[in-house]
Computed example of a mutant assay.
Amino acid sequence: MTQVLVLVLALLIGVVAGARAMTAPAAVAWGAMLGWIDVTDKWSEWMAHPITVTVLTILLVGELITDQLPKTPSRKVPPQFLARLVTGGFSGAVIGSAFFHTFSATGAGVIGAVLGTLAGAALRSGLAAKNNGSDRPGAFTEDVLAVGGGFLVAFLVSLV
Rank of each mutant, 00 (worst) to 15 (best):
K76W: 07
G92P: 10
S125C: 00
V110Y: 03
N131D: 11
V110F: 04
V77Q: 12
I95Y: 06
A83E: 07
S74Q: 11
L127G: 01
L115D: 01
G107F: 13
G109P: 05
G107K: 06
G109K: 01
S125I: 04
F81Q: 10
G88P: 03
S91M: 11
S125G: 00
G120A: 06
L115V: 14
G89I: 09
Q80R: 13
A128R: 00
G89T: 09
R124M: 13
L123S: 08
L82S: 12
S97G: 15
G109Y: 02
A105G: 06
A98W: 02
A98C: 09
A129R: 13
R75Q: 12
V86D: 06
A128P: 08
L82P: 07
L118Y: 15
G92Q: 09
N132P: 01
A122E: 10
F100H: 14
L118C: 01
P78W: 14
T102R: 12
T106C: 10
H101N: 14
S91P: 12
H101E: 15
S97P: 07
V94T: 07
A129C: 00
H101W: 12
G89C: 12
L85F: 04
F99H: 14
G112R: 01
S91G: 14
S97F: 04
L85H: 03
A83Q: 11
G88K: 02
P79C: 10
G112F: 02
K130R: 15
H101D: 13
H101F: 13
L115S: 03
R75Y: 05
V114A: 06
L127E: 08
V86W: 03
A121K: 10
I95K: 06
A129F: 00
T117M: 03
F99S: 09
T106G: 03
T87E: 12
G107N: 05
R124V: 12
S74G: 11
Q80W: 01
G96I: 07
T117D: 07
